[in-house]
Amino acid sequence: MIPAEFDYVAPQSLDEALQALAQGGEDAKILAGGHSLIPLMKLRMSQPSLLVDLRQLQDLKSVNADNGQIRLGAMVTHHRVATGNFGLASAAAATIADQQVRNMGTIGGTLAHGDPASDMPAVLLALEGSVVIRGSSGEREVAANDLFEDFLTTAVGEGEILTEVRFPRLEGYGYGYEKFNRRQEDWAMVAVSALVKKAADGTCEDVRIGLTHMGSVPLRATAAEQALRGQPLTAESIASAASHAAEGTEPPADLNASQDYKRHLARVLTRRALTTASE
């Protein structure tokens, strides 16, 4: 399988990249690690006219973890996230596909692509992180909650580039990441990210739950969060909260997982992720 023809540039600066995108028009696409885009191009499900490769933009490969906030350049690879000691984000990144893919795939690429089956979108949602998006008219910060608009559609507009990913270190939170798939290298059937802050009295001071592959966009399990907040972190209360994990979801069914089964998995994995996060 071979991609259809396209033009290619690898600009030296972000401004040049934005310029190239603008000139390329609506069929121009950004190339980060390429591990979502190139397979689609090989299957000819995507046929861009121009690829703007960000590989020369060194600024987009920086990692900054000062002051309780983690700032990752969009071109930081999954492998660097997995080994960067960033808590939940690292735990999730370590499960992405396989080592070779983690060595090339980037956090910016996966978030801009916004596949609800991929790991990092729901993680960013749970972390209540944000991304920085640059366009010709300047820079804006978009909260994770506003980033994922629809299936494979994000707030990154035509002619814009996602340049940075930000999320808080969340001191005092425990985390759990539960991913269920058939094979280790597969996409998640369902995955659950959980963050739990325990109050001094042992109750749940704060909880955030991200759901992967439970809808056309990554989701928060708000009903489950509400059910646990302020409750003691016992096995019973966690199980009770987890029973709400799939409320209101319309997960995409496929050959290997029906809607019912995915909802069931969401409940099971939420219970497990919360349990780990509460330890």
Binding site: G34, H35, I38, L51, H79, Q99, Q100, V101, N103
Partner: peptide, 9 residues
């Protein structure tokens, strides 16, 4: 680093 050369231009 190991990469998959069929998914790289």
């Amino acid at each position: 680093e190991a990469i998959k050369s069929c998914t790289l231009l």
